[in-house]
């Protein structure tokens, strides 16, 4: 590994020699340390970047009888022209939006309360919050289907308590949002909890010391400082809930045809890969716009990025 480069055997191009010399040159500790990252870059490349490029490639091309590749925007245009598809997109965003808001409303106070406990108890509660994630998501969703069905325990309880006629909850916004909130709650609680628990208690004391009430302190200190956690929670819930397949299928009773289902249909049932890819891209763009707008609201986070 020392500086001198052996003369390459004849026939090799000078460029190759240069590359070899470059690879064999003496490396600093930092450079050697950076080499450790190579496997991860490879994983990133193979599992993330190449597939993304492929999706984009499919989205902007169209299959041709002659196996020639044609660049086109028709896949995108078709989506916006097809009746009902924009509605599907809107439905997805609406459902995932409601899910995110409900999850946030449950998760924030929960995380806030957890932070008041002693450290050991905090760990236990966080464990409990994330425990459902250990059970297969499909099973949990099917369990909710049973609970919410007309013959299920929820209706039995309502009938017994209030003498109500059985209601079919399945296929309503209520059922779908409930299922999603249940599945995505830990993804919201954990980042917010992590963020809240890191806020220096002296900042709260400083605010009280300066004459602020507990309520004022919450809105002026705790809440703004916890926004980065809220933002990552929102990201972790909004994105997957917009594309989930399982929940609308089992709790939507076929009435909920969301963007995830649409993509599935185009890819698997109709074999229209190019069209499916275009829909995926549209979804990504829309979600990024939403996240971008959310980030704009989050002033503190922006300040941090400026540093």
């Amino acid at each position: 590994m020392i500086g001198t480069v052996k003369k390459a055997p004849g026939g090799r191009s000078p460029l190759l020699k240069q590359i070899k010399a470059y690879i064999k040159r003496p490396k600093t500790a930092l450079e050697r340390f950076k080499l450790l990252g190579i496997p991860y870059y490879l994983i990133l490349l193979v599992l993330v970047i190449i597939p993304m490029i492929l999706i984009l490639f499919y989205a902007i091309t169209t299959p041709n009888k002659d196996d020639a590749i044609l660049l086109t925007l028709n896949n995108f245009i078709a989506f916006f022209q097809e009746e009902g598809f924009v509605g599907v997109l809107w439905d997805s965003i609406r459902i995932s939006g409601i899910t995110t808001i409900v999850t946030l409303l449950i998760a924030y106070p929960l995380a806030y309360i957890i932070c008041d406990y002693k450290l050991k108890k905090q760990a236990l509660i966080i464990l409990l919050v994330s425990a459902p994630m250990w059970v297969n998501m499909l099973l949990r969703t099917i369990a909710w289907k049973q609970i919410l069905s007309t013959a299920g325990p929820l209706n039995a309880a309502l009938g017994w308590l209030f003498g109500m006629e059985p209601i079919n909850f399945l296929g309503t916004d209520f059922a779908v949002v409930l299922g999603m909130v249940y599945i995505f709650l830990p993804f919201m609680v954990i980042p917010i909890y992590n963020n809240l628990s890191k806020i220096d208690n002296r900042l709260i004391e400083a605010s009280l010391d300066l004459g602020a009430s507990r309520k004022y302190t919450f809105f002026k200190v705790t809440l703004p400082l916890s926004l980065p956690g809220v933002l990552s929670g929102v990201t972790m819930v909004l994105l997957p809930s917009a594309t989930t397949l399982v929940v609308p299928r089992f709790l939507g009773e076929g009435r909920y045809f969301l963007i995830g289902n649409l993509i599935e249909q185009k890819f698997l049932k109709s074999g229209l890969w190019n069209y499916g890819a275009a829909i995926s891209i549209i979804l990504v763009v829309v979600l990024f716009i939403i996240l971008f707008l959310t980030k704009k609201v989050d002033r503190f986070h922006k300040d941090e990025e400026d540093d």
Binding site: D200, E205, A206
Partner: peptide
């Protein structure tokens, strides 16, 4: 009627 200067200042970072 007191105000405190905390150890490590506890200034509001936001």
């Amino acid at each position: 009627p007191t105000n405190t200067v905390f150890q490590k200042y506890a200034l509001f970072p936001h």
